[in-house]
């Protein structure tokens, strides 16, 4: 078996969930090497090792530079000697940047949006299309290393109990113009509940709410159930809530225990992001809405009546 590179995303030494998912899958496929940008590789090495990485290649601190051009340049500098068979990135803001830059450096294609990886005459990615009703399997045809962008929640992260991974530094060459973008400030938008993609209960609202001012019904219910609030693309595009709330093909993939879709008709774009939920409850006025075809409990009704009634009843219990 060959070597598989896994892009390790960390924050203050903590390894992200998507990275742990990718490491877990990668150890089935070959020897795992984590590739990393940032100043916290040593702090993350124990966790990376536990999930299967034998080594970490890290650029170290980027001094305010963006990860895309920096890590892509550093990796293309060592790809000859390291000769990985495949490179796995999570579909995240940073992962997509590095994968795009790297694909040009290597003149290698990227297979995107995959939810599974199988070895069939070469590594093959499985991508769901048309709202998850159809799976497309794609593999690389050339001799170039395969770059895969994997959707979060595709694999279940499990520790293998390995030793701490050995960290070695890789140099970032002079990036010239491509490295000119700098981060000046970082802002964390506080939300009191659990994160959307980690919550065990998600309540999402869509166009059926009628107007932005009614979105508080979704937030109130999410809060009351100890869950996170999400949104369909339609109301994100309309500017009611930020992009970070979006559940779907573009946006976040969620797999909570309970997903409540209120005023969401179930466009294919949305269904891809939530059909892996354990239980789905849908409330929609239109009895023909596609969301009912995958809901465990469907309520044909007006969200403006059902949600307030539900909130009131929950308030008393």
């Amino acid at each position: 078996m060959g070597t598989i590179w896994v892009h390790a995303e960390t924050k203050n030494g903590e390894v992200s969930t998507i990275t742990l998912e990718l490491l877990t899958k990668a150890r089935e496929l070959g020897e795992v090497v984590a590739v990393h940008a940032g100043s916290d590789a040593e702090a993350a090495a124990l966790q990376l090792g536990a999930y299967g990485a034998s080594r970490v290649l890290s650029t170290g601190d980027l001094d305010g530079g963006l990860i895309g051009p920096a890590l892509a340049s550093a990796l293309s500098g060592v790809i000859g000697e390291e000769a990985p068979q495949a490179i796995l990135f999570g579909t995240t803001y940073g992962g997509r940047d590095v994968a795009g830059r790297l694909s040009v450096k290597l003149d290698a294609p990227v297979i995107t949006n995959i939810v599974d990886l199988v070895d069939e005459d070469g590594l093959t990615g499985v991508e769901p299309v048309f709202g998850g009703t159809t799976n497309v399997r794609t593999r690389f045809t050339g001799e170039k290393v395969g770059i895969f962008l994997v959707r979060p929640k595709s694999f279940v992260a499990e520790s293998a109990g390995g030793d701490s991974a050995a960290v070695s530094m890789i140099a970032v060459p002079d990036l010239g113009n491509t490295g000119a973008a700098k981060v000046h400030n970082q802002f964390v938008e506080e939300s009191d509940g659990p994160k959307l993609d980690e919550a065990s209960i998600v309540v999402s609202g869509g166009r059926g709410l009628g107007e932005a001012e009614k979105y508080h019904l979704i937030e109130d219910l999410a809060k009351r159930l100890g869950g996170a609030a999400g949104a369909s693309r339609a109301i994100v595009d309309a500017g009611w809530v930020p992009y970070s709330y979006q559940v779907g093909q573009t946006g976040k993939v969620v797999k909570p225990d309970v997903y409540i879709a209120a005023g969401i008709s179930g466009a294919t774009q949305h269904m891809v992001g939530m059909k892996g939920s354990k239980t789905i409850i849908a409330i929609n006025k239109d009895s023909e809405a596609p969301i009912f075809s995958i809901a465990d409990l469907g309520i044909v009704g007006d969200v403006h009546k059902v949600l307030p009634a539900l909130l009131e009843a929950l308030g008393e219990s």
Partner: peptide, 12 residues
């Protein structure tokens, strides 16, 4: 020019 090929399409 695309360095990838679709090997199968199947219902999920």
């Amino acid at each position: 020019g695309s360095g990838q090929e679709i090997v199968s399409i199947e219902p999920a």
